Simulated scan of single mutants.
Amino acid sequence: MSDWTTRPICAFDLETTGRDPLSARIVTACVVTVDDGAPVARNWILDPGVDIPGDAAAIHGISTAWAREHGRDYVEGYREIRAALADAWNAGYAVVAFNAAYDLTVLDAEARRLGLPPLDDYGLVLDPYVIDREVDRYRRGKRTLGALCEHYGVDLGAAHEAQSDALAAAELARLLPRRFPELARLDDIMASQASWHAARQHDLLEYLQRVGRDASDVDGRWPIRTAA
């Protein structure tokens, strides 16, 4: 069995101001370690310094007024989130993030915007979104976190609440190699996930171009995309 399947897990999730990871700012974050005992979670609410659009607030429940009143200083909070992930990687944890190319790209893009070091020192990342789409590629239906939790019998709890989403992603990361034993035989799960994601995005690009739809947001890089 490959080492990655038995690594302790540090699950990670962000809720943000928007869908574009290259411009979104962090509103809430959770970094939770999942070992043999009870999960240990750290949570942040940040003041992003900009208005939180109504559609984003409707998803995660944090309004501009609430973030301004209760949110931490943005740069201070950002540094703490980065440090928590760096500590996890340095301690040998696998960092689990559902659709990691979004959350980790937000962290990287915000570092560049703030004049801080880019997120180029990451370690092992496990992305249940990418893994599920590869190992059960012909299953019909949505591939959202909620849909995967329903399919695999995982309790999501409060959807779009950072800690609930992170814990659900952690459970999926443990469950998938048990459900699909061929995953445990992969020696380089990082390279595999990057290859799977690139192939899926390439197929999506070809489809969108074929039907005449906008494909400008399609990006095959994983786990971090950067501005062109």
Rank of each mutant, 00 (worst) to 15 (best):
Pro21Phe: 08
Leu22Arg: 13
Ser23Val: 14
Ser23Pro: 00
Ser23Tyr: 05
Ala24Ile: 06
Ile26Pro: 03
Thr28Lys: 02
Thr28Gln: 08
Val31His: 06
Val32Asn: 03
Val32His: 03
Val32Trp: 03
Thr33Trp: 07
Thr33Pro: 00
Val34Ala: 02
Asp35Arg: 14
Gly37Trp: 09
Gly37Val: 08
Ala38Gly: 05
Ala38Ile: 11
Ala38Leu: 15
Pro39Arg: 07
Trp44Gln: 05
Trp44Ile: 04
Ile45Cys: 15
Leu46Lys: 08
Asp47Phe: 10
Asp47Pro: 10
Gly49Cys: 12
Val50Met: 14
Val50Ala: 11
Asp51Tyr: 10
Ile52Ser: 00
Ala56Met: 08
Ala58Ile: 02
Ile59Gln: 03
Ile59Leu: 14
Gly61Ser: 11
Ser63Val: 10
Ser63Ile: 07
Ser63Glu: 08
Thr64Gln: 09
Thr64Tyr: 08
Trp66Glu: 13
Trp66Asn: 11
Ala67Phe: 06
Arg68Gly: 11
Glu69Leu: 12
Glu69Met: 10
His70Ala: 13
Gly71Asn: 05
Arg72Ala: 13
Asp73Lys: 07
Val75Gly: 05
Glu76Thr: 15
Arg79Phe: 01
Ile81Trp: 07
Ile81His: 05
Arg82Gly: 02
Arg82Ala: 04
Leu85Thr: 06
Asp87Leu: 04
Trp89Gly: 08
Ala91Leu: 12
Gly92Arg: 10
Tyr93Ala: 03
Tyr93Arg: 06
Val95Asn: 00
Ala97Ser: 15
Ala101Gln: 13
Tyr102Asn: 03
Tyr102Glu: 01
Asp103Met: 04
Thr105Asn: 03
Val106Ser: 00
Leu107Gln: 00
Asp108Met: 02
Ala109Met: 01
Glu110Phe: 00
Ala111Arg: 06
Ala111Asp: 05
Ala111Val: 01
Ala111Met: 00
Leu114Lys: 00
Leu114Phe: 03
Leu114Arg: 04
Leu116Lys: 05
Leu116Glu: 11
Pro118Ile: 03
Pro118Ala: 13
Leu119Ala: 11
Leu119Phe: 14
Leu119Cys: 07
Leu124Trp: 05
Leu126Gln: 05
Pro128Arg: 08
